[in-house]
Design a protein around this nucleic acid. Structure first.
Length: 284
DNA sequence: CGCCAGGCTTCTA
DNA sequence: TAGAAGCATGGC
């Protein structure tokens, strides 16, 4: 566990003695598209139909707009605070490239988002850039999500399943709109059962997700990693393909296989944002 | 104007 | 069965 205590003080939930966490690095590293930086060290967003403002102070983390109960039942797992990232980092420090990535961005944690939201947002991510993905997701929520305190919830599959392409036009998702509708219909009908993905073998879970038109290996892996907490799977986007060919031509070391998805997140952000690292990458 | 963006589907040889 | 083209949209 990566914090020592949590208390409710003056209307806010306050986390003490936390380790291995930086809100900016975690919420702005391409794994979630619903968080906005509203002030220095402050991010605001919505997940699981709840609004949260999270601020980093010198020795504590302030969670505004949330209760102790919501922290224990939602945000603790959302931010993966139950996992000991110190232990994970000690494993990664045995690898030259990963130890550099950790010293560059040691505050990343892999989020446990809602499976449906992860599936949907990464369908929207394909052949797209991160700022525009955020816009698509925002408009999808504003158009079809339920209004809650602080903003709009992510629309559930049942809400989208009955829509048609023209209904989705305001989102301006382009060719991805038809993929969203197919996903919504298959999940709402039970043809694709997201709940079963937690326990399926990896290849079965991927095949289940890839029954959806517009979901390939990359989007399936993102859903499993960011939505289901399957930290052993590694989404292979263009950046990670470059990283693998430059630094891991024979694959990741065996001792990190069970947490390779977490390694992937450190490396993805490191290579995209640190010039010292990215200049060695060649286009694949 | 052309190029690119956390890919996938479809067409082609 | 591998490899390229096409796909909507918007920023640069």
């Amino acid at each position: 566990m990566d914090y020592e205590g949590v208390m409710f003080e003056r209307g806010n939930t306050v986390l003490y003695g936390f380790r291995n966490f930086d809100p900016g690095e975690t919420l702005d590293c391409g794994q979630s598209f619903r968080w906005v930086k509203t002030a220095e060290n402050t991010y605001e967003g919505i997940a699981f139909r709840k609004y949260l403002s999270i601020s980093l102070e010198t020795d504590k983390l302030i969670l505004r707009g949330t209760t102790l109960d919501d922290f224990n039942h939602i945000w603790r797992d959302y931010f993966d605070f139950g996992r000991d990232y110190g232990e994970i980092k000690s494993i990664f420090n045995g690898d030259e490239t990963l130890s550099k990535a950790i010293s560059f961005t040691g505050g990343i944690r892999v989020l446990r988002q809602e499976p449906w939201e992860a599936l949907c947002t990464f369908i929207l991510s394909q052949n797209n850039n991160i700022p525009r993905i955020k816009g698509l997701v925002q408009r999808l929520c504003e158009c079809f999500g339920e209004m809650i305190t602080g903003g709009f919830a992510f629309p559930p599959p049942e809400r989208l399943a009955g829509l048609n392409i023209e209904d989705l036009a305001p989102v301006r998702a382009g060719f991805r709109a038809k993929y969203i509708l197919d996903a919504a219909r298959k999940v709402a009908s039970g043809e694709v059962d997201l709940g079963s993905l937690y326990t399926m073998l990896m290849y079965e879970a991927k095949a289940e997700l890839m029954k959806i038109h517009g979901v390939g290996p990359k989007v399936a892996d993102c859903t499993l990693l960011y939505g289901l907490g399957r930290v052993e799977c590694v989404p292979m986007d263009v950046w990670m393909k470059r990283v693998m060919s430059a630094f891991y031509p024979n694959g990741f070391p065996g001792e990190i296989a069970h947490i390779a998805g977490i390694a992937q997140q450190y490396l993805f952000h490191y290579m995209r944002t640190c010039d010292d690292a990215s200049h060695v990458l060649t286009v694949v």
